[in-house]
């Protein structure tokens, strides 16, 4: 409608010619990907295709061999980058939750607020409670992880990422370790996040979620992006034979 809409907003996260080898294995073989504000990018691909490594390179939990990782306008591969500051902007949610077992839900969510952002306990706890409320766990702040279901643990994991006020959240197979009946609560939180305008990159096999919530689906194989497009295009009418084969296998496996 207006001219402002014609100019695409600057990406929050941009990967340029990203390479990563594990010995002779090319895990990432030249990845270019830009994620724009409020976008939900859904990454699919066979196991070993480099999806998780891709995510882990975005905050340099995994060190790329070459290429650029541009977060909010700055290349975080540049020497002298304050990685701990950058990581505040990039939330990460793990397949196995990785909650700290010796801390309560609130303790998990407030640790970085207090020790990295330097908030006083009161301020940190206020923000931590807000984050827990956002994932529907306001009443669990004093529970230790072992007293929570898998779905609740993962939602605490999401709250831990959200509390820092990230510009983008990376989800690494967030529901793969969950019993089927617990998946829904986590996906519901993710759907709400999407609706609230959070930028997200999600590696997952939850096709129904991708169809409903993703702006773009990226299919990876062998460390490369084979094809990307809208969920309708990738799931309904993929151009590449490899995409078609993978999508049909995945749809059968998941009903």
């Amino acid at each position: 409608m207006t001219s402002a809409e014609a100019v695409p907003p600057a990406p929050i996260l941009e990967l340029v010619a990203l390479h990563k080898n594990f010995g002779p294995l090319k895990v990432l073989d030249g990845i270019d990907l830009a994620v724009r504000p409020r976008e939900l990018v859904f990454v699919i691909g066979p196991s070993g295709s480099g999806k998780s490594t891709l995510l882990r390179c975005c905050n340099r939990l995994e060190e790329p061999d070459s290429g650029a990782v541009i977060v909010d306008g700055a290349d975080i591969m540049r020497p002298g980058t304050d990685l701990n500051a950058v990581r505040q902007k990039i939330g990460m949610v793990f397949q196995s939750f990785n909650l700290y077992p010796h801390m309560t839900a609130l303790g998990n969510v407030t640790l970085a607020l207090r020790k990295v952002q330097g908030l006083a306990r009161d301020a940190a706890e206020a923000r931590g409670r807000a984050a827990l409320a956002q994932v529907g766990l306001a009443d669990k702040e004093n529970s230790y992880p072992n007293a929570l279901s898998g779905g609740q643990q993962q939602r605490v994991g999401i709250a831990r990422a959200l509390a820092l006020g990230p510009k983008i959240v990376l989800f690494d197979e967030p529901t793969s370790a969950l019993d089927p009946e617990l998946v829904g609560s986590v996906l519901a939180v993710m759907r709400e996040l999407k609706a609230a305008g959070m930028t997200m990159v999600v590696v997952s096999h939850e096709l129904a979620f991708a169809r409903a919530a993703a702006d773009r689906v990226v299919f990876m194989e062998g460390g490369r992006i084979v094809e990307q497009g809208s969920p309708e295009a990738i799931f309904g009418n993929p151009r590449e034979a490899r995409t078609r084969a993978f999508v049909s296998r995945l749809s059968q496996g998941h009903g």
């Binding site: 939990l61 701990n84 990581r87 793990f94 990785n98 700290y100 640790l111 820092l164």
Partner: peptide, 30 residues
């Protein structure tokens, strides 16, 4: 202490020493 504990802490911006002190050592000691 599982590697995921280090990764979770580092991903929230905690440095190596803070991760060791607040996340890893308390678990190792217990």
């Amino acid at each position: 202490v599982p590697r995921g504990q280090w990764e979770a802490a580092r991903s929230t911006g905690l440095g190596f020493g803070a991760t060791l002190g607040y996340v890893v050592l308390p678990q190792a000691v217990r």
